[in-house]
Design a protein around this nucleic acid. Structure first.
Lengths: 352, 352
DNA sequence: TTTAGCACTCGAGATATTTGAGTGCTAATT
DNA sequence: AATTAGCACTCAAATATCTCGAGTGCTAAA
């Protein structure tokens, strides 16, 4: 544990650097209220903090800059989370679309809100639940040879996709389809449905195989889309404005463009139990993010499904303000989605 | 009309500059095959071309760079459209999703293909047709208090949105809804449906108003989404790589992020009759695009609906290759979408 | 009309100079 | 033992100076 004065100095360096982006010198700290020692004393302490790895110098004759360990110590031990102001709360709330019951849409708009609020890039995943099952599948004929297939999962995810059929859609075909769906899909976990399963099913249909095949393939598409926890990223262009990305902005955006690493980034957050996770610099395991931090918070729907939402930005970000903001947003999302979910579940059971 | 030799020099300057990005000097032109005159002669011609405004010098002792008028003259008079190679055709074709009948999805994937193929940003609009009407609306109950509303327009646009109702969805309610839809929406032009119309309708429903209201509002949302020709942009991060955007990349991306100007950019292309439009530098009316060019091509569905797809990049782009590529892509899109459309229309009429 | 020749221009790159914020160390002070 | 004043030192950033050469425009001869 650092002695109090050293803590105070570290905190001051982190906070001032977050604010100004310039290396912090001993004199500017001395002039801060509450610092009644000389700059030489501060320099001695700074030398210690440097030896301990919490701060570093860009070059010998410059001030100090927090290292990622400095940020980490600050976040874990020194930072005082800011109280959100009323208008900030309102701004965050306004970003959540209470009305629609569709989690994807809600997360998309919430992400946009985060982008506006933080000026960083926002990242979110749709809820995933390894025990999710298919609650409902409907076929909607919209024109003679085109139908829309709509699927609802136990998690509340709603997916739909158009499907052109080779033969005209008649009542008979619809009934066949609905029977197939009832027998083979409703109530089954998403993980059960895959290409092989679909092919076997098609093979067993005999004469009806031809007409059913495109519809069933579309179901497989929907299941896949619902299983993969989709990662949504927005506000990337905000990052261009930060001078820490001057040179590497292109690389970073390219990296964020690829889906796989994003998925890993968000999903790997499940190994801790805390509901909010802060990853500073190389704590994100990707080299492309060594100068970036993520604040990721998990939301829950009911007791099983979880997803995450958060931000990506330069390590120099205002942790003490952002962390409570994201916490607050996540609480709202959890509440809204759980409400919808429970309402559905209750009603569903009443029906039986 | 420029004398032949001057044309030849202008074309060579444009082409070499497009390739290298460096100002083109008289000597490097002289060494090109087919130039049998001295560098002094070329310099004289270049002086003329400069006076005419087709080329300019970054500074007195540098080579020449095409002005936007130079590019324009080149595109209009000098350029020889490249023949697409077999593998290029295949790459373009591979980007078009023949199977799904959904124009939006098709355009999205085609845009991605353009991004990969050209390394620029791609822009596209969904088809719009001022005479479009509602062909079909279906309500799909997916859970006790949630329904999916699906709408198909005469243009083939398929839109769907979830809607939570305040009361449980029963057969009675579905019938009421379907009657309402048949009487008030099917066959009516999209432009007829607006908030006022919906409100009047709701008001006339008496006791049923409460249960119908959220469903009808959702229809309004769908109609709006289908009327507004949505602009899709992708591959913006490609632009970061071009040195002409070194400084202004952020501004450009911010600009492209906003929806309104994009809409104007694409829709204003309707004033010419040609099916492909090339806008160089300030011919795009926005200051943010003064160093950019767009190649935008219109596609058609049947005889009425049109939309556009194209690219945005630095004025220094390979027009002679890109123009035929985009033309080719647009032809494919038009053909696929028109096929679907006609098939639908024919079948629809057979039905009657 | 074309071309060889030449003086001229000016950006890019290399090198030198200056400046000042900030440091670490030492020796005196508390 | 902890603090501080004082001072020599360091080094990036800003500024100035120099050199180089690609490319030009012009002139006078072919």
């Amino acid at each position: 544990m650092l002695p109090p004065r050293r803590q105070k100095i570290l905190a001051a360096i982190v906070e001032q650097y977050i604010e100004t982006g310039e290396p912090v010198g001993s004199k500017s700290l001395m002039s801060l209220p509450g610092f009644d020692v000389s700059s030489a004393t501060i320099r001695n302490e700074m030398a210690e903090l440097t030896a301990l790895g919490f701060i570093s110098q860009p070059h010998t004759s410059a001030g100090r800059v927090p290292t990622q360990y400095g940020y980490r110590y600050y976040v874990d031990n020194l930072m005082q989370p800011a109280e959100l102001e009323e208008n900030e709360r309102r701004r965050i709330e306004a970003g959540v679309d209470y009305r629609s019951g569709d989690p994807e849409q809600l997360l998309a708009t919430a992400g946009e809100a985060l982008v506006d609020f933080t000026n960083f890039a926002a990242i979110s995943t749709t809820p995933s639940d390894e025990h999710a099952f298919i609650k409902n599948i409907e076929m909607v004929p919209v024109s003679p040879k085109m139908a829309m297939i709509v699927m609802l999962t136990s998690t509340g995810i709603l997916k739909s996709k158009a499907c052109r059929t080779d033969v005209p859609i008649v009542v008979d075909l619809q009934e066949t389809f609905q029977n197939l769906v009832n027998q083979n899909f409703i109530g089954r976990p998403l993980s059960d449905i895959n290409t092989v399963m679909i092919q076997t099913l098609v093979a067993s249909l005999g004469a009806k195989a031809l007409s059913m095949s495109p519809l069933l393939v579309t179901i497989a598409d929907l299941v896949e889309a619902a299983s993969i926890s989709e990662v949504n990223l927005s506000g990337q262009s905000n990052l261009l404005g930060y001078k820490e990305y001057n040179e590497t902005a292109g690389q970073l955006l390219d990296f964020l463009h690829r889906d796989e690493p994003l998925n890993m980034l968000v999903s790997s957050s499940s190994d801790t139990d805390s509901d909010i996770e802060i990853r500073i610099g190389s704590e994100n395991r990707f080299k492309e993010l060594e100068n970036s931090s993520m604040i990721i918070s998990k939301y829950k729907i009911g007791d099983n499904a979880t997803g995450a939402i958060g931000i990506i930005g330069p390590t120099r970000m205002n942790y003490s303000k952002l962390i409570p903001s994201i916490k607050y947003l996540t609480d709202i999302i959890s509440r809204v989605l759980s409400d919808v979910y429970e309402e559905e579940t209750d009603l569903g059971e009443e029906e039986n």
